[in-house]
């Protein structure tokens, strides 16, 4: 019963998986967007990528909340906080309606963690629980979060929620629990597998196509090309946070 045997068992499983991925990637012209950014399970998130989103508010349907529903299903929030008041329940993503006071122009857009490059929430966290992965995804390491809520005070976008009660039956890919803070993590578990975040997928399934996900550091990615062509604004750009989530038509 040597250790290497166990390692080999894993390696066999692992090789099989990477072979499958490689097989898909052989034909670059026809691969789906989904596998274009695949990394193998053993790879670490790399600073060669920076994941981002581009949201076209003109395409965003005012009554539609598919992205919110998809996020809830994917990460199992939005139910189960039965003791908490509405003000206390977590929201990772929300639809915001904005009305121009002068023109009366009404817009609707999804708002979640903006995955700031210079993230205030990361800077203020005393323990380093609020953290940014190498690939730009900002998230909370609940193992060392002490629940001080300083990050919630610091976030300009109200992207974070504190869990006010005991939870159970979490998704394996989305652990969350009492006394810690959480927020959108761009579906890191999906991104690591080469998939789009759940909200982006839902938006395209609903035929709205208002959300685009991709690698901001890859000049040839769809998101970079679109950003170069038509630009994309940051919410509260004056704060200079270089957000990973950008908007068009604000």
């Amino acid at each position: 019963m040597s250790n290497s045997n166990h390692t080999n068992t894993y390696r066999r499983k692992f090789l099989a998986q990477s072979a499958a991925v490689a097989g898909l990637a052989i034909a670059p012209g026809i691969i789906l967007n989904q596998v274009a950014h695949a990394k193998s399970d053993a790879d670490k998130a790399s600073s060669a990528n920076r994941w981002g989103m581009l949201i076209d508010t003109n395409k965003c349907n005012k009554g539609c909340t598919d992205c919110v529903t998809a996020c809830k299903t994917e990460n199992a929030w939005g139910a189960g906080e039965t003791h908490s008041s509405e003000e206390q329940q977590a929201q990772w993503i929300r639809k915001v309606t904005i009305t121009d006071k002068q023109t009366g122009h009404v817009q609707s857009l999804p708002l979640m963690c903006q995955h700031c490059e210079t993230a205030p929430c990361v800077d203020v966290c005393p323990t380093g629980a609020s953290m940014k992965r190498e690939d730009g995804i900002v998230q909370v390491d609940k193992h060392i979060c002490i629940g001080c809520r300083y990050c919630m005070m610091a976030c300009p976008y109200k992207a974070r929620s504190f869990i006010h009660e005991k939870l159970e039956l979490q998704k394996p890919t989305a652990p969350r629990g009492i006394g810690t803070v959480e927020s959108c993590n761009m579906c890191a578990h999906r991104v690591d597998k080469g998939q789009d975040p759940a909200c982006v997928e839902a938006c395209s399934n609903a035929q709205h196509g208002a959300m685009l996900f991709g690698d901001l550091k890859d000049a040839n990615s769809a998101i970079s090309i679109e950003l170069k062509k038509h630009g994309g604004e940051q919410i509260r750009a004056d704060l200079g946070l270089n957000t990973g989530v950008r908007y068009q038509g604000l």
Partner: peptide, 25 residues
């Protein structure tokens, strides 16, 4: 009043030196 006062030891041993909170500790 912390969400996880049981993890105070974390706050005492793991510092993020960018955080003014950690400095205050």
């Amino acid at each position: 009043d912390l969400g996880r006062p049981d993890r105070l030891i974390v706050a005492m041993t793991v510092y993020n030196f960018k955080s003014i909170f950690a400095w205050n500790m």
